[in-house]
């Protein structure tokens, strides 16, 4: 005998009555499980309409959110990783790169572009998490360095949108040195008195946190973003017990004094515009 019995017969929808729903039409919030249409979700800046969960988005979305009329000039778009160590783990790094480029239609984990934000000139370097976890290798370092060179030459403020698991292991010490490269370049920005806004989004960890992401004249984040040097799993293993609620969230990091502000995505553009205006006038 079965444990459950159907009380009413015939409540299953027959095949001919089932409606076709194309993929990607609906969005289900991973936090509160509310389901809304992707159009609605996009109109709300990829933020859940019921619980305000900020979905991870990439450079395309951030550029669209920030640049006036989505107009910008991308620079150094063709820069790619060269696999200097001929690295192989469970898969060849060169093959991993080729696959990821094909799948994501991105050349690496960062895009750099300049344009206007509420009328203010700004260079934005925005990381893409879907490219090998937004990891920082030579390309991320080089593109940040070149965008800073452009900012220095044109006295343009810089905003780096971080979203990264940290350094890219397949470039080993080359990745490590990108921390020194980007931070050294930022020291030139500071010397020249050109503002640098660091925007830390979910997640910002490891070598990215321990270099440019924490070096903003302003450090700003989004609600609920994970911001850490050592990730939660590693910390849990170190201390051998569970982590306190909310540990390493943007709210926690703000409370500890390492962020200037947390800004809702919907208010990001106007806030960045206002802040740039503060620096300029």
């Amino acid at each position: 005998m079965s444990w459950f019995k159907r009380k009413k017969e015939g409540i299953t929808t027959s095949t001919k009555d089932k409606k076709e729903t194309p993929d990607g039409l609906w969005y289900k919030c991973p936090e509160c499980k509310t389901i809304i249409t992707t159009d609605e979700h996009e109109d709300n800046s990829w933020v859940c309409t019921s619980c305000a969960y900020h979905e991870k988005i990439g450079s395309e979305e951030y550029f669209a959110l920030l640049f006036d009329n989505n107009a910008f000039t991308e620079i150094n778009a063709g820069v790619k990783s060269a696999d200097p160590l001929n690295f192989t783990d469970t898969k060849k790094y060169s093959a991993r790169l080729a696959d990821t480029i094909a799948k994501t239609e991105l050349n690496d984990a960062i895009r750099t572009a300049y344009g206007k934000v509420d009328g203010n000139d700004l260079m934005i370097a925005c990381m893409d998490f879907k490219f090998i976890g937004g990891s920082m290798g030579s390309v991320v370092g080089e593109k940040i360095a070149r965008s800073i060179d452009y900012c220095l030459a044109n006295r343009l403020p810089l905003m780096i949108i971080s979203k990264s698991g940290g350094a890219r292991m397949m470039e080993a010490a080359y990745s490590l040195m990108q921390m020194a490269k980007t931070s050294a370049k930022l020291s030139l920005m500071a010397k020249a008195g050109i503002p640098y806004i660091s925007f830390l989004t979910d997640p910002t960890t490891g070598g990215v946190t321990a270099s440019f992401a924490m070096l903003g004249d302003l450090n700003i984040s989004e609600p609920g973003a994970l911001i850490a040097f050592a990730g939660p799993r590693v910390v849990r293993e170190t201390i051998g017990k569970d982590l306190p609620e909310g540990f390493q969230t943007a709210e926690f990091v703000l409370e500890k004094g390492f962020l200037d502000k947390i800004i809702l995505r919907k208010e990001l553009k106007t806030n960045i515009g206002k802040l740039l205006n503060m620096f300029a006038n």
Partner: peptide, 21 residues
């Protein structure tokens, strides 16, 4: 660098970044 709870609270990432800078 030490990956402990207090190290995270006191800004391990910021401390290292600041030194490099």
């Amino acid at each position: 660098a030490y990956p402990g709870l207090e190290a995270e609270e006191r800004g391990q990432g910021e401390a290292i970044a600041r030194n490099i800078f």
